[in-house]
Design a protein around this nucleic acid. Structure first.
Lengths: 221, 221
DNA sequence: ATGTCAAATAATATCGATATTTTGGAGTTG
DNA sequence: CAACTCCAAAATATCGATATTATTTGACAT
């Protein structure tokens, strides 16, 4: 009888919705690092049952955004200088691998994805944090998307999100040096389209390191 | 009043038990790749409720041993030549990083862990597959254990298990070339204790590649 | 025969309630 | 006054049942 599709298009499961919402809350710092995540609270917040919440938290555990202690519940993953450092190191190594593989497999469809995502990013205002972070991630993942290594891409995606979380947390503090981020993106973009893997990778990694070292200097200064 | 502890020692949660059992079943190939994993069946097999089973399957999803399709249940992760290849590539890269970091941080306690696990492995018969795989993994993880990079170690651990699964599956086929596996372990061991990172890493990686390429040649031959 | 549709069947996802375990505090003792 | 035990409150983990959603079956029309 229900001829008008209630939510038109994709009917996600309750669990997935919980997962996405909780993920966003943690990434944006609304559920701060180390905070105890009580089922009952979240159940009330998301207006749903306990099962989907539990399962969503389970999934977030594998993204390393939530810690679980057997019989003692869940809590938002803590942050630390060492953890940030490790994320940075792993990203440099894994994205280097992925970008090289992506370029090596380079085809037209991929090139178009890169161009499109780059264009969208350039057209998005940086003030609109939420939206900018989204297109920014799209651009970076598009660069890697042709690597033909699904597990590697999954790791890169995870690490990207873990890193973004630190960015959100730091955003409360002093505005981070506007630097020449846009110019750096431009250089990476150009080198990639030139299929110059060495240059592209070098630029990408130093892009990360520069941002990373700035944060590290702030974290316990 | 219960003065005699029922299971003496560690009381794990039902979920964890399910997780460990299912994991072993999948690794050993008792739940073959691609097989539909129906909650009801597993519930009966493990003699427990549906909730722990669901949660355990959720956890296995993050280990990439189980695939989940929203609203359509779980299935054991499929296998493929490409997937094996990717696992091999990632292991070579990540274990290289971990081993170098581990050696760089090298201290006495770590050295003793390595020596101990090596000794245990050398004292274990290869025929006792189950047990040998356990001590073998212990040895390899001990080598990396001093890297002081928890996320990296987690990735290595995951990838190790994914690889072992292919070994179990291939074990049904022709016995894999006894080769000089023991000798190779010896060389890796020696180079590591010498703190010769370049040599140790080189030996470790070629150890993996050799085994890997042997399997690949068999997979679709 | 073959393809389509609807009812029946089976499996998953979710809920509400119960059982277990942990946590916090009051009261007692050395 | 510190440390320890025991009890009450709270939170987690698990169960059994129901509601949703996918899949199969079989009748019917082409």
């Amino acid at each position: 009888m229900n001829m008008v599709p209630s939510t038109q298009g994709k009917e996600a499961s309750t669990t997935r919705e919980c997962y996405l919402k909780l993920r966003q809350l943690i990434l944006a710092g609304d559920l701060p690092p180390g905070k105890k995540l009580k089922i009952e609270e979240l159940r009330a917040l998301l207006k749903t049952g306990a099962s989907p919440v539990r399962e969503a938290l389970s999934l977030l555990t594998s993204d390393m955004l939530v810690e679980r202690i057997d019989q003692r519940g869940f809590r938002a993953a803590p942050v630390s200088k060492a953890n940030f450092q490790e994320i940075l190191t792993l990203r440099c190594s894994l994205e280097d691998m992925a970008l090289r593989a992506s370029i090596a497999n380079g085809d037209t469809a991929w090139e178009e994805r890169v161009v499109l995502s780059h264009h969208r990013m350039s057209r998005t205002e940086r003030n609109n944090t939420e939206l900018f972070e989204e297109v920014h991630k799209m651009f970076h993942m598009a660069l890697l998307s042709n690597a033909d290594m699904p597990m590697l891409l999954r790791y890169c995606d995870q690490l990207y999100d873990l890193n973004i979380r630190y960015r959100y947390l730091a955003a409360d503090g002093p505005r981070y040096g506007e630097r020449s981020v846009a110019a750096e993106h431009e250089e990476i973009f150009d080198a990639t389209l030139r299929r110059d893997a060495d240059a592209a990778s070098e630029l990408l990694i130093s892009h990360y390191r520069r941002t990373g070292e700035y944060f590290i200097s702030q974290m316990e200064g």
